[in-house]
């Protein structure tokens, strides 16, 4: 999985060297080493240790929005830059008109803000893959 993350996105393995990275089924997770050690000592079933980095979908590694927001700044490949107006649309789950040289999963950013995972089909549009429950709500009555 590390090889895929590095070859696809350019995020080097050393980014995670102080952390514990583990597989759960087809999903890859990242946590602090101490949290993983504690999980092994605990006799209770845990409901989650750390956060999900991503998973393999049809042989291609897809990073989660949460992972991109945390580690996206280390990526050197498959990074798509959009503007501030588009960033809002993307965060709300929209489709963004922009060109990209790589097809498939991409890391979408706006300046220093790493927004999440998108999908580029090669048609000048990046589809936001931000999960529904995680999206920015644009209506006036939205928010907390």
């Amino acid at each position: 999985m590390f090889e895929q993350i590095e070859s696809l996105y350019g995020i080097e393995r050393k980014v995670f060297k102080e952390m514990c990275v583990y597989m759960l089924g087809k999903e890859l997770y990242v946590a602090s080493r101490e949290a993983c050690d504690l999980a092994n000592r605990l006799r209770y079933r845990n409901e989650g240790v750390g956060i999900m980095l991503g998973r393999s979908v049809m042989g291609r590694f897809k990073l989660t929005t949460n992972a991109i927001q945390l580690f996206g700044r280390y990526a050197t490949k498959r990074v798509v830059e959009i503007d501030a107006r588009q960033a809002i649309e993307f965060a709300a789950g929209g489709i963004i008109k922009t060109e990209c040289k790589d097809e498939g999963y991409v890391i979408v950013r706006c300046g220093s803000d790493y927004l999440g995972c998108g999908y580029y089909r090669g048609n000048g549009e990046v589809e936001s893959l931000v999960p529904k429950k995680r999206r920015l709500i644009l209506q006036k009555d939205g928010g907390d």
Binding site: A35, N46, K133, R134
Partner: peptide, 16 residues
């Protein structure tokens, strides 16, 4: 869990 994920917290182990 949703707050842990959105805020990028990796040092937490959730139990019930």
């Amino acid at each position: 869990k949703s707050n842990i994920e959105r805020l990028g917290v990796v040092n937490t182990l959730v139990t019930r």
